[in-house]
């Protein structure tokens, strides 16, 4: 049977645990608040970046969502999306990582170089360089106007030759049944990609670049927008990529399947490339498919 003294010991242990918990809480709160960057720190960090800024540089924040000081970086290229995208950042020759608590000392992605690290009050400014041996040869996003867009197969094939508002339309301009650049929430962050809303009744949509510069790797990212995966309507979307007529990527994306799916295709032995993307679905409500295509040397 539990004795009064044992009960008392238990009560003492519980109360000391509570006191320790409260003290830890006070300490955690103090540390968290002390880590918040003030105006002076942001100002100092912006000065560090501007002093050594080079054309083509990019500013990102660490943590990516912590862009409270973003207004100090007016006029620069800045990514303020909620999550980092190191793949897209690697298209820039240098990346400034403006870091605050709780991620003030972020680790560079694999293969990236640390160029410098500067303290600026409660902010640390890191300058990183992406892998130097992997320059970008071609970016589908920047080559949208060179694309040949069509729909239908065989004799029913029709060119989508209306270029309006930086997008290809099949016939008269359409608010969403078109192909062009867009920024949309895909797999956790806003991503700039090629909007290629699937057509209805298995009518294939094709986006083709006939003369893509040669390189080592063709990298494709594809996914449905956040709005698309929330929907209960529509059917899975078949996505294919052919290089020089050969099928190199084939994926079917489910109705509510979230993801920004990456495919790396070795194209090192091929000359100028003919890259064709094909998108098909049976029922197309909200089948907002987006993709990017890059060739890396």
């Amino acid at each position: 049977m539990t004795t009064p003294r044992a009960l008392s010991t238990r009560r003492i242990a519980v109360s000391l645990f509570l006191v320790a918990g409260a003290l830890a809480y006070v300490a955690m709160g103090w540390v968290q608040r002390a880590g918040v960057a003030d105006d002076g720190s942001w100002e100092q960090a912006a000065r560090v970046v501007r002093q050594d800024w080079k054309e083509g540089d990019l500013v990102v924040f660490s943590p990516a969502w912590a862009h409270a000081g973003a207004p100090r970086f007016q006029g620069l290229r800045v990514d303020i999306a909620e999550l980092p995208d190191w793949y897209e950042a690697a298209k820039h020759p240098r990346v400034w990582v403006v870091a605050t608590a709780p991620q003030r000392e972020p680790t560079p992605p694999e293969g990236w170089q640390v160029i410098s690290r500067t303290e600026a009050g409660a902010v640390t400014v890191h300058l990183w360089g992406p892998p130097a041996d992997r320059p970008l040869a071609w970016d589908g996003l920047a080559s949208m106007k060179d694309a040949k867009v069509s729909h239908g197969d065989g004799t029913a094939r029709q060119e989508c030759s209306t270029w309006q508002d930086d997008r290809w339309h099949c016939g008269p301009p359409h608010p969403w049944q078109n192909v062009g650049l867009i920024t949309r929430d895909i797999e956790g962050r806003e991503r700039t990609a090629i909007w290629a809303h699937a057509r209805d009744n298995n009518d294939p949509l094709e986006i083709r670049w006939p003369n893509v510069p040669a390189g080592r790797t063709l990298t494709i990212h594809v996914g449905l927008t956040q709005r698309a995966i929330e929907e209960v309507n529509g059917t899975p979307v078949a996505f294919e990529v052919r290089v020089g007529g050969s099928l190199v990527v084939q994926r079917t994306i489910g109705t509510n399947e979230a993801g920004w799916f990456r495919h790396d295709v070795d194209v090192s032995d091929r000359g100028p490339l003919d890259v064709a993307v094909r998108i098909v679905t049976k029922s197309n409500p909200f089948r907002q498919l987006c993709f990017t295509a890059d060739v890396w040397r």
Partner: peptide
Amino acid sequence: LEVPAFVAAPEGVP
């Protein structure tokens, strides 16, 4: 634009 002109961010969270 790429950055907002003003951010309201108590304890650094926009």
